[in-house]
Amino acid sequence: MSISSLVLLFVGGTVTGTIGAMLGLGGGVFLVPFLVLAFDLPMHQAIATSIIAVIATSSAGASINIERQTVNIRLGMVLEIATVTGAILGGVTANLLDGEILRKIFAGLLLIVSIAMIWRLKMRNGDVILHTDGSLPGTFRDEASDQTVAYTVKRLPPVMLISLLAGNISGLLGVGGGIFKVPAMTMIAGMPIKAATATSNFMIGVTAAASAFIYFSHGHVNPLIASPTILGVLGGSLLGVTISQRIKGTALTWIFAVLLLAISLQMYWR
């Protein structure tokens, strides 16, 4: 592999990691299309690379969120039973499917994500109804509102079911699955969005690890591709978190939602 390919993978990882973190999506949604469309990588290798990148960004982010006490560790452990089970099934299924089929399923996922991104904008602007009579209580200091927020978790079974689906998609397509879990945790379980996002991010590393060795054992982890890409994604995700605190995200979300729609079509028709 040439130096130019190495640099391109690193830069691509940095850009996709930055955009993913700015939009709160994780890198996989942009990384897999980059590796497939720009680098002509087989779908299974692109997914395997993305899964390891998800572990890196989740682990780095979770260590920060744990210090901020926004992660509900007990809830995360409960939901991980569902996400890990789903991810193992997803990883096994993906390795039975042809790359062409996976590419078309991924195109469908991008379509859903682009719609969900716009829908999430409306959700962010509304009030979150918190409950104090559920289970698995959590408390954190919200610096933006200078408030200490206390909450409990309601309606756990449907959230577990959605987590199973999110884990399955993670193992099948190499994304984090937060786009499904965060709305479930806020709208169904009644968690504040900061705690939901931090807990989802905490979980996706373990979820991704559940399918990582399945791809590894099938020879889909190419260290020469994965190494520079993951370093880029890791740096990009840290950069993205910093940038996202300084810019207003509404216009940006619209731009990338439309971009994802275009990538979705390109992934489907390629």
Binding site: Q69, R124, N125, G126, D127, V128, I129, L130, H131, T132, T139, R141, D142, A144, S145, Q147, T148, V149, A150, Y151, P192, I193, K194
Partner: peptide, 17 residues
């Protein structure tokens, strides 16, 4: 995200065990 409903409680943080 600083908008919380009246259902949210402003409480003193109890030290973790």
């Amino acid at each position: 995200m600083g908008d919380y409903s009246p259902g949210s409680k402003k409480v003193d943080v109890e030290p973790s065990p």
